[in-house]
Computed example of a mutant assay.
Amino acid sequence: MKNVTISMKDEMLSELRVEAAKAGKSVSRFVADLIEASIHKSAPAAPMSRNAQMEALERILSGPKWSVMRDGRMPTAEERNER
């Protein structure tokens, strides 16, 4: 992935940051999605509602648990990387 530098007026940047935040994306991801949508002539994806975000987070957190603790504590870096 390549980096691109763009110039814009301060007012435009402020509005861009607000719109990216509303969509729950970084400015970089928001701009990339807009450009991709423009190139592919499709509408940008609608932002997830707060309820949908919470449901997705709950699905992730309720997933399978991994027992990595050793004697009631988390393993040290050396213990994690031992072979």
Rank of each mutant, 00 (worst) to 15 (best):
M1T: 09
M1W: 02
K2L: 08
K2P: 13
K2I: 05
K2T: 10
N3K: 13
N3S: 12
N3P: 00
N3G: 09
N3L: 12
N3H: 10
V4H: 12
T5M: 10
T5S: 15
I6S: 02
S7Q: 14
S7A: 13
M8G: 08
K9N: 11
K9A: 12
K9G: 07
K9I: 05
K9R: 14
D10A: 15
D10E: 15
M12V: 14
L13G: 01
L13T: 01
L13E: 12
L16Y: 03
L16C: 07
L16N: 06
V18K: 13
E19C: 03
E19N: 06
A20N: 05
A20V: 07
A20C: 10
A21L: 08
K22G: 00
K22R: 13
A23E: 07
A23N: 09
G24T: 04
G24M: 00
K25N: 04
K25Y: 03
S26D: 08
S26R: 09
V27L: 07
S28Y: 00
R29N: 12
R29Q: 15
R29T: 14
R29F: 04
R29E: 13
F30S: 02
F30P: 00
V31H: 04
A32L: 10
L34S: 06
L34P: 00
L34N: 08
I35T: 11
E36L: 12
A37R: 01
A37M: 06
S38W: 05
S38Q: 07
H40L: 14
H40I: 03
H40K: 15
K41V: 03
K41D: 07
S42D: 05
P44G: 05
P44A: 01
P44D: 03
A46T: 11
A46W: 02
P47R: 13
P47Q: 08
M48Y: 10
S49C: 05
R50H: 01
N51M: 11
N51L: 12
Q53L: 13
Q53E: 11
Q53H: 03
Q53G: 03
Q53N: 04
Q53R: 15
M54K: 09
M54N: 08
E55D: 14
E55C: 07
E55I: 11
A56F: 03
A56M: 11
A56Y: 06
A56W: 02
L57A: 14
R59I: 06
R59A: 11
R59E: 08
I60M: 10
I60R: 11
I60G: 00
I60L: 13
I60A: 06
L61C: 04
L61K: 11
P64F: 06
K65P: 00
K65D: 06
W66Y: 10
S67K: 15
S67W: 01
S67H: 13
V68L: 15
M69G: 00
M69D: 10
D71F: 01
G72V: 07
G72Y: 09
G72R: 08
R73N: 09
M74C: 06
P75Y: 03
T76R: 08
A77K: 08
A77D: 11
E78A: 12
E78Y: 00
E79K: 01
E79P: 02
R80A: 08
R80W: 08
N81L: 12
N81E: 11
E82C: 06
R83T: 09
